[in-house]
Nucleic acid binder design. Structure first.
Lengths: 145, 145
DNA sequence: TTGACAAAGGATAACTATTATCATCTAATA
DNA sequence: TATTAGATGATAATAGTTATCCTTTGTCAA
């Protein structure tokens, strides 16, 4: 049967990370959550199992998991507000390294088609496609990974 | 000929906003920018034309423009990190009011197709579709707008 | 035009999210 | 089991943003 922790112990070892109880519980809380939680929300969840845990430990491990690509973040642009001055419908080309954003004209995009069903009562108004990758200057700067 | 400010003066009047020099210059700076600037970057730009302007004025007007839907923001999830514990490729259904995120299975999504050309050297790795709208409970809470 | 007043601007304090620091403590390895 | 690099917990520091408060200005009616 598949490991619910996805071989977390091994993944830590691979990356030279110590396998600690806190780290394990934090990781479990994030992967078990269905709502894309904030670090603060994870802290509240983890506290039920490890009351003495520090918020700093949660933040530190979240950062470690992100840097090690064990986890990812929903938006590449949290941290600071980015303004959209272009009133035309369009899509975005995003570099996952430098986080630069380039507009893609919507006339060049055949929209995605969702064939499943959305939650009852949800009114979809628009769709934005994020094409994510590595821009030329970031690719040049670092050979791989 | 089309108004480069998009009838900014009229739009202010419609919404009961005073038409001030600062407001006009801030708006121009945002719509002229091609890089989805941060409030801080706008401040630096505007300062060249109005050296005495306060950073607080930039922030206040940015918020007013967003609330009045005169401008929009690139990511609905700046402000706090949202973690992605789901390792499977998938897309997101996002409520623009409460900012809740629901995963959409990628097997239910026929991907968008970009027919234009990306900047030279950009290596696209994946695409995420954000379907944005109003969730049932937010729609219930407020009748319109 | 002008005068009154609501709204906006500027300076700065306060707040929130996140990271850094540092003194213990513990997992990994020999 | 002893050693030690790395982890934790407490808390200070920082960055981004919002609130406060007093002064100034745009709006509108006379």
């Amino acid at each position: 049967m598949p490991d619910p922790l996805g071989g977390f112990r091994e993944r830590c070892k691979q990356r030279g990370l110590a396998f600690t109880h806190q780290r394990q519980v934090i990781f479990e809380a994030i992967t078990a959550a269905k709502d894309h939680p904030t670090p603060e929300a994870i802290y509240e969840t983890v506290r039920r199992r490890i009351p003495s845990i520090s918020l700093a430990t949660v933040y530190k491990n979240v950062r470690i998991f992100l840097d090690a690509a064990i986890l990812s973040e929903v938006s590449l642009h949290h941290g600071s507000l980015r303004l959209e001055g272009n009133p035309e419908a369009h899509h975005h080309l995003i570099c996952s390294r430098c986080r630069s954003i380039t507009d893609l004209d919507s006339s060049d995009m055949k929209p995605a088609q969702f064939t499943g069903k959305v939650p009852k009562g949800f009114r979809v108004e628009r769709q934005i496609v994020e094409m994510i990758g590595i821009c030329a200057s970031c690719a040049k700067r670092q050979s791989s990974k």
